[in-house]
Design a protein around this nucleic acid. Structure first.
Lengths: 188, 188
DNA sequence: GGCAACATTTTACAAATGTTAAAAAATGAG
DNA sequence: CTCATTTTTTAACATTTGTAAAATGTTGCC
């Protein structure tokens, strides 16, 4: 089990001791493409790590869904508001492919944070990495046009372009699908 | 010193023991309005807490500055990329008023993270709170028009509206100053 | 294969925001 | 207080992006 965890990106920095602690609380689960694993307006009691598959987080609007996050193999996957504030979340998380996940109760994770220094710092780094990635996206929206953001998305996430519907990528980039189509038509 | 720290929002949750540990490494400093306390492209070796004053973080573009963050009394203030990745940052931080700050070496802070469980979890929560606030802003950009974002900014940050130049608020909201002026003219 | 459901592109038009420049208002130093 | 500087507003026009609807393309199931 520990060797298996070591191969997953988010666990790579942890000592065997910490991995053993975590492994005691981890369950493997599988879900099919299309499963909504986390639902808005519910307190989600688990923290997941995506072992295999692709996921998206989205919010529902009146006549649109906005995808604001993609997860790939090795990424963590949780309801921000449940995890951080113990409140119902605003986001849904959908699996876009048949996936395998590691599941960990938040209550167990929080106990580990309060008992285990290395795991507490691991949790800190997870939040910090998400933070810097999110802030970069916010800044990119200000400095770069939609076309440039699309080009960079292709460069940085070649897997996602192949495997994710364009309508999801459009809202992730902050434009409508029509605009994304126009951008794509320009670079043909 | 410890009692003084307790009055600052970001320290409120810490035990006396943790506050004593932190206090050993904290220096008080003052700076005048207009001081750029953190500069892009440098590794910033300190972590600051704003005791009194207002600050903004901005990036320089070709013919514009984009403000993407405001700090008020009790907020922490650091170069994301220095703090998180030990690399030169992309942001400048400017004090918009005469300010008093608490200064802490990152190297000291990281030592505390590696030695002190409560402080490690305190650092985790700081990152998590920034993360959730940043993500909310990214989502708000998708669902709300500029006028609505302005209204909410007024409601949530009445102090900032009074004390910060509108040109900074415009870029924070993701519009030009001309557009913000038009929005303001509408609600008169 | 053929059909139904869904995804993507295209078109025409509308709305929002950006750009540039100039005027008006506010601020701050001496 | 006055002048110079900076900030904010206003105006005219250009550009980008959005909306709605139709056309085309793709996928998967029976």
């Amino acid at each position: 089990m520990i060797d298996k965890l070591k191969n997953i990106a988010v666990f790579a920095s942890l000592s065997d001791d910490s991995l053993r602690e975590l492994a005691m609380h981890i369950e493997y689960i599988k879900h099919k493409k299309g499963t909504i694993i986390i639902r808005a307006d519910k307190i989600e009691p688990h923290f997941y790590v995506l072992e295999k598959g692709i996921a998206r987080a989205f919010c529902d609007g009146e006549n649109q869904q906005i995808t604001f996050w993609f997860g790939q193999s090795g990424n963590v996957l949780f309801s921000f508001n449940s995890y951080i504030n113990n409140r119902p979340g605003y986001e849904n998380i959908e699996l876009l492919e048949n996936s395998t996940l590691l599941q960990l109760r938040l209550s167990d994770l929080f106990s580990l944070y309060d008992q285990h220094l290395e795991i507490a710092n691991w949790g800190r780094k997870i939040a910090e990495q998400e933070l810097i990635a999110t802030e970069r996206r916010l800044i990119d929206r200000a400095f770069k046009g939609a076309a440039e953001r699309y080009q960079e998305f292709i460069a940085q996430s070649p897997e996602l372009i192949k495997r994710v519907a364009l309508k999801h990528i459009a809202s992730y980039l902050g434009v409508t699908q029509v605009t994304l189509s126009r951008i794509r038509a320009t670079y043909k």
